[in-house]
Design a protein around this nucleic acid. Structure first.
Lengths: 252, 252
DNA sequence: AAGATACATGCAGAAACGTGCAATACCAGG
DNA sequence: CCTGGTATTGCACGTTTCTGCATGTATCTT
């Protein structure tokens, strides 16, 4: 029984039956209650369930399975998001890109973390309205529907008026030769504008992005502080990136 | 039976049947009355129910259906929203305020309607991303969490760069003497800025808003083209507004 | 006013919890 | 193949939380 397998099983159980009893699962899978508790604690920390005495309940009733799993996507995205969220310092500011991985980061921000989040994604803004302590700044502009973010001249101009410690960018492709790429030219320009307004830029790249490329170049490697990925530590592509001098943060 | 599950069950019972009898629930779930009483006490402490001798009653209806209200809104809101959506001309542009009524307007926009929607609400932007033909422009700025809209200097400035045929504004109070009011000063200023950028301004006022007032004045009646409401045709407040020369669109 | 019912409180046993620790499994590098 | 380091797991321990019962008090009903 793999750890990831266990976690999937827990989420599945949660979605199907609406609850998880630590004791029962431990007996069913033949593992200790401690492991189950540890898993539930981790899942709760990522906002995927609500920890209660004796087990766990779905995070928001009936939403976990339907939206969260589809929107949050793969286990890899969650891991990447957790590491990325950890880069945000208390009292610090972060520019958060759009996309599903960035949304996962927003959901992974600890509730007690006081910080400023700047984003061009209405989806992420909406998600963070629930956050008790995050100060939110939304970059306006024409909404590019395909990615659900604002883009274009107005959005780039709006970005010129903000600054942050950290910028977390999602991309659609990470390739040693092609670099960081995305599917739309305007979007690529917007990502460049965002990155330029932060002291440090990290790329959110769950493993399915690694080794692929899209038409439009976002940033050269020199402008990137590091890459956050859940790809194996000896993935060929990641190795080549490491050789290029890119800092790689492992999310595992 | 998890403790948290029990509490959910109690709230559910409360919402469905309108009351909870401690003795009955204890028998039904096979637990002691003490536990039920403890749960009810805790729920009451959180304002989720009202403790009475022998059991509990729902808290104020406003609290109970907090979610439902946010999502769907009253029947009146839907009617108002339908009329408001009808004001948007094909190919035209509309500035859409935030709030639940405006959200209902966004949802009421016909799928085949080609138009431009300008909004300062990430919630509404998110809702309209699904719309096949609406061009979307989001006004950025600091996000005022209570209302889930952008406000403040940056947002007002962003508004200066747009224009539209129509502005649909929500308010929290509509009163013949106090005028159109809302609960926050920044929000009021933002609504003024939006209204100033459109040729016509209509107020979305479902009946529960009529006759009430909040601290901050939004607009004088002269700046308003009309009021859209589902309040009865011979409502005293609406009559007085009509006498003041305000155009009233009946939503029924 | 009196009996019945519901309630709050204190208490004790049981269950669940978090943490530190050691054993084990796993993996990369030599 | 071996070795050192890391991550995972189960166990032991002390702590916290929950639950049902007993007791005394408050509230309702007749």
């Amino acid at each position: 029984m793999l750890a990831a397998e266990r976690r999937t099983h827990l989420l599945d159980l949660l979605a199907r039956t609406g609850k998880v009893v630590a004791k029962d699962v431990a007996a069913e899978l033949g593992i200790s209650e401690d492991s189950v508790r540890r898993d539930l604690r981790d899942l709760a920390a990522e906002g995927l369930c609500q920890r209660v005495y004796g087990g766990a309940l779905p995070a928001s009733p009936a939403v976990v399975d339907y939206d969260a799993r589809r929107e949050l996507g793969t286990d890899g995205k969650r891991k990447v998001a957790a590491v990325a969220a950890g880069l945000v310092r208390p009292g610090g500011s972060v520019i958060l890109d759009g996309g599903t991985t960035a949304l996962a980061v927003a959901r992974a921000l600890p509730a007690e973390l006081t910080c400023t989040v700047i984003t061009h994604s209405p989806t992420i803004a909406t998600a963070l309205i629930e956050h008790p302590r995050a100060e939110l700044f939304l970059l306006g502009g024409r909404v590019f529907k395909h990615s659900a973010v604002t883009c274009g001249a107005a959005a780039v101009e709006a970005a010129q008026n903000v600054s942050a410690d950290l910028c977390l960018l999602g991309v659609t492709g990470v390739h040693p030769d092609a670099g960081l790429t995305t599917a739309d030219a305007d979007e690529a320009a917007m990502k460049r504008a965002l990155s330029a307004r932060a002291a440090e830029t990290y790329i959110l790249a769950s493993s399915e992005k690694i080794g692929t490329a899209s038409p439009y170049r976002v940033l050269p490697w020199e402008k990137v502080t590091g890459l956050i990925t859940d790809a194996g530590p000896h993935d060929a592509t990641v190795d080549r990136l490491g050789a290029l001098g890119v800092e790689v943060l492992a999310a595992r």
